[in-house]
Every structure is written in C-alpha cells, then in structure tokens.
C-alpha cells in the first residue's frame, strides 16, 4: 500500500502526516506523549518553546476554516516557527494556475511545512507526492478522507479523560461515533486511530443515507438506532452535520435528525455515569446535541480545542524538529 510509505521514511520516521491509516501504534503513542509534554511545557504564562526557531510553516487552506487554521497557527507559533496563512478560494486554482503551481510557488519561498486543507479527498497525498524533498505536508483535512490531527487529538482526549482508557487501555473501550459518517473525515481518522490502539468496540450510528457503503470493513459495527448504539459506551463522538445535507435528500429535516440521532438530555441521562461526550466542532446547537449539554461537565468539546493545539505542536515538532530537540517529549 502506498499510503504509509508516503508518510513514513525508510527509518519509520514521520515525514508527512496524511492519514491515520497505517500509522504505527508506537508512533501514535509517542505523539500523544509528546503532546502531553508540550502541553505542560506551554501551560504557564510563557507559552512558547524554541523547538522550531527559524522554520517556516505555511497554512494552505483551500476550504474556509477559521478554527482549525487558528489552532495550527497557534501550534506553529508556540513552537517559535514563522507562520504564513493563505486562504485560497478553490476557484482561483482553476484560472490557469494549477494546484501544483501553487505548491511550487510556495516552495520557492522556502517553506518547511505546508498545512493543507482541501475539499478533494487525496489532496494531501497529491501535495506530498509532488513536494520537494525536505518539505513536509501536514493534512488538515482532505475531502471525506482524513483529518489525522483531529484523529490524534480525539485519541489524546479519550486517553486523558475516559477513566477506562487510563485503567484498562483502549482495548476495553466502547466508542460510538454518531452522525454524518458518510461525509466525515473525522470519523475515518478516529476509526483508524482507535483500531490501531486496540479498540474493538467501535460503533457508527446514523440513518442509512449517512453511512458509507462497506464501512464495516474498517472494523466498525453499524447502528441505525441511537439508543442501541449508545448502550454501554464509554465515549460518544458526535459529528458535525452540514446543514445543506437536506438538499441532497440525505435527511428530511434537522428537527427529525435531532429527534432520532441528537444527544438529548434524556439520552444523556441513559449514558454510563463516566461516559464522555466529544464533538470536533463547531457544533450545531439543537441538532447534534442539545444546547445546554454542549459545555456540561462530561462534555469535552472545549478541552478538545485546547488539546488540538498540543497535538498539532507534537506533530510539527516530530516532523520538523531535530532529534536533539526531543528532550521535551
């Protein structure tokens, strides 16, 4: 398979981060540990470490995103890298300048890493295949395919906050991923990561039009009934539902989705007492989750954002940092 070899070099070191698929367990754990160390190191008033002094990180976003871009920007800045943000309308690349031209132009400005988000699945692979040697690609989301830093930060959050993950490991966890699995790169990245860390009870819960064909082959069970899907789980990961899904006839209405697949107070009460609730954000209040639950005590939605910065720092440091700088890991 081409995917893992593209992101790992011959020594198994991370060269690009494109997908959670094929990332070795040891590497994932090392990144999570490193994120923990960096979170501690930057938790005081001084939030910067000098790991990537003089390196240049370019955020290359072909899809609008403020939050994700900001966390990548903060991550790079806290590592002391120089950061450039480029928001490129997908249409501008169709006016003669190809994606390859864009990449090569930015490379000529001697960037060390591109953080890439694009609406087409496989876009990050494309950039990695064409990047000059020594230029790293960090996938910040490509179509429905992958969002590996979100996958890592979800693992980080589960490890930090789900009691059973601490006591018995990922192998003992039951995880439900609820909502628009069909269009979700987060779901795919979470599934790969959870599987690699040994999780065997992964459930995807959605009405049939939002379940992609053959997803069982990724090692999950499919539920079309939320009560059954949530029964006994330790972790609930809610996915964002794009409001335009009604147009494609995936759903009759947001209200019906909320009634059948939304996390309501009633359903929340039926969860195990120590179950945690996650969401990649931004949430649609009253759709995926009842508004007042969003920032309740067992909701980790805001912690995910914070963890996201540490995880992204860890990935950037792992790829761009010199081995000598690993004292912080």
């Amino acid at each position: 398979m081409k995917t893992p070899s593209l992101q790992l070099d011959e020594h198994g070191r991370l060269r690009h981060l494109l997908t959670m698929e094929g990332l070795p367990r040891d590497l994932i754990l090392r990144l999570l540990d490193r994120a923990e160390g960096l979170a501690q190191a930057t938790s005081g008033a001084e939030k910067k470490v000098a790991l990537l002094n003089g390196r240049t990180v370019v955020n290359l976003f072909f899809e609008a995103s403020t939050r994700t871009r900001t966390t990548f920007e903060l991550a790079a800045k806290r590592l002391s890298a120089d950061v450039i943000n480029l928001q490129i309308a997908a249409s501008s690349t169709s006016k003669g300048e190809t994606l390859l031209d864009t990449l090569k132009t930015m490379e000529a400005m001697q960037a060390d890493m591109f953080v890439v988000r694009h609406e087409a699945s496989g876009a990050a692979h494309f950039f990695a295949e064409h990047a000059a040697p020594g230029v790293a690609i960090l996938n910040a989301g490509d179509g429905r395919h992958a969002h590996p830093t979100q996958g890592l930060l979800d693992l980080y959050t589960i490890r930090a906050h789900a009691p059973k993950a601490r006591s018995a490991g990922f192998g003992a966890l039951s995880v439900a991923i609820v909502g628009d699995v069909l269009h979700s790169r987060v779901a795919r990245s979470d599934i790969h990561g959870l599987r690699t860390l040994g999780c065997v009870d992964i459930r995807v819960v959605a009405p049939p039009p939002l379940i992609p064909a053959g997803i069982e082959s990724m090692g999950v069970r499919v539920f079309h009934d939320l009560e059954r899907g949530l029964d006994g789980v330790d972790v609930v990961i809610l996915l964002r539902l794009q409001k335009e899904r009604m147009l494609g006839a995936f759903l009759p209405s947001l209200a019906e989705f909320h009634a059948d697949f939304g996390l309501t107070r009633e359903r929340f009460r039926q969860l195990k007492p120590d179950a945690i609730v996650m969401h990649p954000g931004p949430i649609n209040r009253g759709v995926e989750i009842e508004g007042e639950l969003a920032y309740g005590e067992r909701s980790l939605i805001l912690q995910q954002v914070t963890h996201g910065i540490a995880v992204r720092m860890a990935v950037m440091a792992e790829i761009l940092g010199s081995p000598a700088a690993e004292v912080l890991s």
Binding site: S121, G122, G143, R144, P212, G214, S217, M218
Partner: peptide, 15 residues
C-alpha cells in the same frame, strides 16, 4: 466504485 476501498479513501461513490 461504492464499496470499502472508496469508503476508506473518502472518494465520492458511484453505486
């Protein structure tokens, strides 16, 4: 093709 490979790669499917 709509199936496990396309699903894993997140490619829009043709059933």
């Amino acid at each position: 093709h709509e199936g496990p490979v396309g699903t894993r790669l997140g490619l829009p499917p043709i059933p």
